[in-house]
Design a protein around this nucleic acid. Sequence first.
DNA 1: AACCAGTCCAACCGCTATTTA
DNA 2: ATAAATAGCGGTTGGACTGGT
Length: 305
Amino acid sequence: MGRPPCCDKVSVKKGPWTPEEDLMLVSYVQEHGPGNWRAVPTNAGLMRCSKSCRLRWTNYLRPGIKRGNFTEQEEKLIVHLQALLGNRWAAIASYLPERTDNDIKNYWNTHLKKKLKKMQAGEGGGGDDGVGPSEGGGGCEKLPTVPKGQWERRLQTDIHTARQALRDALSLEPSPLPTPPGSATYASSAENIARLLEGWLRPSGRGGGKGPEASGSTSTTATTQQQPQRSGEGAASASASHSAAAAQTPECSTETSKMAGATCGAGAAPAFSMLESWLLDDGMGHGEVGLMADVVPLRDPSEFF
DNA sequence: AACCAGTCCAACCGCTATTTA
DNA sequence: ATAAATAGCGGTTGGACTGGT
């Protein structure tokens, strides 16, 4: 019974990914599309666990990922969603298709948590910008295990509440949309690799002694600062440069919601517009039941246009 | 210049839900 | 129906970088 094991865990490599490995993974995924991760390491010639491959792809290499500074609006969105949904980073990330759950999680833990704590301390625990009292680890994170039906119902409520709160949040400070130039950097896999290799050949700054990995992380943060000129064409560049992937990506329909949002839709740029129009559009004929379909699997971006 | 504490982020770990044989 | 593997998620950690002394 059962299935054959995916990989012998003896000879799997761990630790930071090298640009070469990234390249192998990207070219494999571009050719075959993401999914069937079990087969990826062997087929791509990687000495990595399938899990590691998937993680590397979804968190770092997949097209449409926006890296670097979070905009104020993204920040606000995360804070509100976190307050409402708890530490369900994947769910939160589905509202920010250009960000990975890992990114959001990290950003929350390193920036927002502190920020909010400070705010609350400053205001004597009073009102922040709408964030509930669920700070310091997330209000709903300690959800008791509930039957699925209940969970779904609660999720529906969550979404309903989230919409309301977000509507409030966004109306509080109607920040300029779409994503401000300079902060928006859409990393296509090709661009990622290019930067990785660049960093590999010419280690600099933060990546100084870190070698391949450094180039990776350098490319992430430095990206935003280094390439303001790219931001303008970010979405275009992303959609263009990953066109190879997109062209051959049947995963557009099958891959995760993130993929759908990032690669299949109208590109990453209009994410907020999408979100806003969804949030602000009360008249959308979605019954509460229909909402469920919108929650984790992000709505088809085309619906928003 | 050297040291140290704090910050940040990529990657790993462990768990659960889902899928498959 | 059941066992085992995969996929996905959230929490945690290792280690490079940064800023202050």
